[in-house]
């Protein structure tokens, strides 16, 4: 049986309109990401996002195909994110993906965005050893996942309240920084003392679940009591606490499972302190680690095409009446 090789991926789950052509799930021929700016609203506005996706999607797909020098008749499948994410935003990409599969008579593959984030690793390192443990951290998600094989996932733990990226954004707001707050905190923290304030490490000792809302509250309380603490010190100390929890639990998960490698994924994986500590901790316990490049951490469609390619091989195509699922969990 010959496996499909060229997959067009489509990603519209949040505020990035993206398309990509990937060969054999590993080689990116083109990947175009058109990002919306929602900074003036202090967060992603679902209706604004949905409108922008509809305007951007076909131009982005067209640019992707031209850049990949790929004609529709060379494609083997269309993969689109169908969850989790903003329902209106997801529907734009899913509808266009289904229609293109009809127009070009190709299989349609409905891809879980979270699976996509893990596949970002395979795009740059096709030989990541499995089983692997992935720490998936973004604005919407904070989870530890064991991936035993392609299509075989086990959720080890996740946040009980705020996502890590959410905590970064909320703390950035407390510090009067712009949106999104993650990159700003990352930058300021390099100029601050991470030991200046000893913020709590919530749930550090127990299990694989996370909790970040208490940490954010601790920062708020500290700022109320000590308004003169330098912004740099607060940013560095908060970041140290958050990273501490994330890395400690990832390492614990790796040690308690028969893990071959540790993978970092999701938008917060672009944080330089998290990358540094994650790599260091993996080295300490002698487990191979993989950090996707920053452009592969944030939302893109190459990861969707890569995940879709594997899914097609394992499960086959998805029906055209597949519903988008805004709260699709990790389990396949």
């Amino acid at each position: 049986m010959s496996h499909p090789s060229l997959v067009l991926g489509i990603e519209t789950s949040c505020d990035e309109t993206a398309a990509s052509v990937v060969r054999d799930g590993t080689e990116i021929l083109a990947s175009v990401v058109s990002s919306q700016t929602h900074s003036q609203h202090g967060g992603v506005v679902p209706e604004v996002a949905s409108r922008a996706h509809l305007e951007q999607l076909l131009p982005v797909i067209d640019e992707t195909l031209r850049e990949a020098k790929c004609r529709p008749q060379n494609l083997d499948a269309i993969a689109a994110t169908t969850g989790p994410g903003l329902v209106g935003a997801l529907l734009v990409g899913a509808s266009a993906g289904k229609a293109l599969s009809l127009a070009w008579d190709l299989p349609f593959v409905a891809v879980n965005h979270l699976h996509g984030h893990i596949y970002a690793a395979f795009l740059e390192e096709p030989d990541v050893a499995m089983p692997l443990v992935a720490l998936l951290v973004s604005g919407g998600h904070t989870m530890l996942v064991e991936m035993r094989d392609h299509g075989d996932y086990k959720l080890l733990g996740q946040t009980r309240d705020d996502a890590a990226g959410e905590a970064f954004d909320k703390v950035a707001r407390l510090l009067g920084l712009g949106y999104p707050g993650g990159p700003e905190i990352d930058r300021l923290a390099t100029e601050g003392n991470p030991e200046a304030v000893r913020f709590p490490r919530p749930m550090l000792a127990d299990g694989y679940d996370f909790s970040f809302s208490g940490l954010k509250t601790a920062v708020a309380n500290h700022l109320k009591k000590h308004p003169n603490t330098s912004t740099q010190d607060v940013a560095a100390s908060f970041q140290a606490a958050a990273v501490d929890v994330l890395v400690t639990k990832a390492v614990r998960a790796a040690q308690n499972t028969s893990t071959g490698s540790l993978v970092l994924a999701g938008g917060v994986a672009a944080n330089s302190e998290l990358r540094r500590r994650f790599a260091e901790a993996a080295d300490d316990i002698g487990i191979a680690h993989f950090l996707p490049s920053r452009s592969m951490c944030t939302d893109n469609a190459a990861m969707i095409a890569a995940a879709g390619w594997q899914q097609l091989r394992i499960q086959g195509a998805s029906p055209l009446n597949t519903a988008v699922d805004p709260s699709w969990g990790f389990a396949a």
Binding site: E16, V44, G140, D169, G267, L291, S293, N300
Partner: peptide, 26 residues
């Protein structure tokens, strides 16, 4: 507005070509 949604890094439209993807060094 979803004030809880954090988006990182890419502020502008960027296109990544296959051959231009580099792994970040830490």
């Amino acid at each position: 507005a979803r004030k809880d949604t954090s988006k990182k890094d890419i502020a502008k439209k960027d296109a990544i070509k296959g051959d231009a993807v580099t792994r970040d060094t830490v």
